[in-house]
Amino acid sequence: MKNKNASRRKFLKLGLAAGASALIGGGSVLSAISKVNKPAGGDKVKMLSPEGKLMEVDRGHALCCGVPTSKEVRKGIPGRHFVMVIDLSKCRNARKCVSACSKMHFLQPGQEYIKVFLMQDSEDTSPYWFPKPCFHCDAPACVNVCPVGATFKREDGVVLIDNERCIGCKFCMAACPYSSRVFNWKKPGLKPEANYSPESSVPQKIGTVGKCDFCPDSFVSGILPDCVTACPNGVYYFGDKNEDVVTNGVEALRFSELVKNKSAYRYMEELGTRPSVYYLPPVDRSFPYERGFEELPEEMKKAYKVKRAHLKKFKI
């Protein structure tokens, strides 16, 4: 136990440095040296011990403190309540969050834990991009209906899935009003060498559900979720509500002030699910929404045309 705490502390330090980096983005053209396209989590940190020994430690996920016991996983970190604030005015559908997340969770091609929707609230209002992870609701409909408790709500607000318990009934997918969950219809292709834990949710398991997990395996190291650091526009703010500070990796803001001053809202509050994800309304935008179509493949562009077109067509 002592040992574990020590290494936890070490990683807190590292996290501070890591938070500020990572914003330059993109691989290099000078790929002469880049032998392997390393998946996320392969980030190595060197440390020199007082004995003069050089150690190499991984800065990645779930690798610092050993795999926590299932009881710890289901309880969460006491005294924390993780929240996310998504600033819609800065999103231009760059999709970096989506790809970072898919990479880091070893998702099958086509699977997305974060989806970016093109929303338009009514015919007269302007469309806007709407990135949507799992909301980690405080009254999660998905948790209520799970017959085996495979999906559970932790004390720190995170909703996780135990893929070793899940029976794949998909009831949670039907119950989640925000379509946050995806199913592993086939055998996962990429298999990272990792021991499964609900906190890392890798490797995926066939016939079970998956969803955005807020990357809780890196919380203890003070590392932000990958979507937060991957976003080039600083759309995502993440933090502990009890600490009252959220950060997008560049700036740190008081959560209560941000939410108050920018009139944050939670999506479909009327459903009573009490999400942990807050949205800042898309006002004073950094980009016109058309920017989001750049670099998109044709079929995706077409799919974004599907809004609630049905309603217009059929007016009795």
Partner: peptide, 17 residues
């Protein structure tokens, strides 16, 4: 049949909520 993991059917009795 509509369950992804029929093999875990007994989990309903083991962990049933």
């Amino acid at each position: 049949l509509s369950m992804g993991r029929m093999d875990r059917f007994l989990h309903i009795f083991e962990y049933g909520r």
